[in-house]
Design a protein around this nucleic acid. Structure first.
Lengths: 169, 169
DNA sequence: CGCCACTTGTTTAAAGTTCAAGGATGAAAC
DNA sequence: GTTTCATCCTTGAACTTTAAACAAGTGGCG
C-alpha cells in the first residue's frame, strides 16, 4: 500500500487512465447510436430501437412474440414497448393479436409489410455497423469487445438465465 | 477463397460471431445507459447527459463554456443543448451570459448551486460506473476497451482535431 | 459601403421516453 | 367461491429529443 486509503465514505474516484477510457466509451457509444438512429430514420423511417423490435419479431417463430418477452429481449420497459408498438402498428408494420391461452396477453406480430421494410432497411444498417465498428477493429479487438460487453451486460441484467437464484444477488 | 462472393449490391452480412458481439454490445450499452440514467435521476434529479454537461462546465476555466463548444464536447446538437440548458437554468444550476466579443454568442456558466449538486451526485455516479464496468474487467480488458472505443469514436467524429484537413476524408 | 455566405443560438412542433397509476386476468390460499 | 396478491399490458402527463425553420451577427469581398 503506497497510497493512503480514502476516507470511508469517499468514493474511489476514477484514475486518469480510467477517465480516459470512460470518456472514449461515452463518445463512441453516443456517436454510434446517433449515427445508426439517423441512418435508419432516413432510410427506413424509424429509430434504431424500433428497428431492433422488428428484427426480434422477424427472428421469432410465426413472426410473433408476447409483449413482455419482446420487451425483455429488447431491454426496454413494457411501457416503452406499448408506445413503440402502437406507432409501428399505425405504420402497418406490426399488428397485435390476443393470446388465446392468457387473456391478459398480447402478441406483437410482424406484418408482411413490416418484413418488407425490414428487408429493405437491413443492408444499409449492416453496412453502417460494419463501417463504424467491425471494419475498424482487428479480429482480436472484436473478440475482446465481445467478451467485455458480455461481462458488462450480464452484470446489469436484472434477471436473466437463472436469475431467480437469490444467491447470485 | 472458399466462399462465393456476394452479389455486388448485397451487403456483407454479419457472421454468427459478429452478430454475437454486436448483440452483446447493444445489450451492454443500453443496460448501462439506463442504469446510469436511473441512478442520476433518482439521486440528482437529472439524466446522465445533463450530468455530463455540468461536468464539462465544472472542468472549464471560470466554469463556463460557449454553447457551441459545450455541444461539441458533449456530442449533442446545439438544439438539444439549448433545451437542456434552459432546463438546468430553471433549476438554478446553470446561468447564461452574453459573450462580449461576439454578440451572437452565449456562455453557459455553472452556478455555485450547480457545483453543489454536482459534488453531491459525483460519488454515487462514480460508484455506479465502477460497479457496472471497471470492477468487472481485468486491467487488460480495460486497456483494450479504451483502445477500441477510441478507434470507434475517432471514426465517427464528424470533425475533430485537424478535421478541416480534407485529405483525411 | 453593400452584398452574400456562413455561424450562433433559439424556437416550434412532432416524436419518443419515462413515471406513476390503473384495469383486467391469473394463480394460489383459504 | 372469494380473497389476495402477482402479472400483463395500457394509459396520460411530464419530460426529453429531433428536425426544420428562423433571427441576429459575423466576415469576406467587390
Amino acid at each position: 500500500m503506497t497510497k493512503a486509503a480514502a476516507p470511508a465514505h469517499e468514493p474511489q474516484w476514477l484514475t486518469a487512465e480510467e477517465q480516459r477510457i470512460w470518456r472514449s466509451y461515452l463518445h463512441a457509444t453516443t456517436l454510434l447510436e446517433d449515427q445508426l438512429d439517423r441512418q435508419l430514420q432516413r432510410d427506413a423511417g424509424m429509430p434504431h430501437v424500433y428497428y431492433g423490435l422488428l428484427v426480434k419479431l422477424a427472428e421469432s417463430p410465426r413472426r410473433r412474440l408476447r409483449m413482455t418477452e419482446l420487451a425483455r429481449d429488447a431491454k426496454i420497459t413494457r411501457s416503452r414497448l406499448s408506445h413503440a408498438i402502437a406507432r409501428l402498428e399505425k405504420n402497418g408494420w406490426v399488428r397485435r393479436e390476443d393470446c388465446p391461452s392468457d387473456k391478459r396477453g398480447q402478441f406483437a406480430v410482424l406484418t408482411d409489410e413490416g418484413l418488407d421494410v425490414l428487408t429493405n432497411a437491413a443492408p444499409g444498417h449492416v453496412t453502417a455497423v460494419r463501417n463504424a465498428l467491425f471494419d475498424r477493429l482487428t479480429p482480436e479487438q472484436q473478440k475482446s469487445l465481445g467478451e467485455i460487453m458480455q461481462i458488462v451486460a450480464e452484470g446489469l441484467q436484472p434477471n436473466e438465465a437463472g436469475a431467480d437464484l437469490p444467491w447470485l444477488r
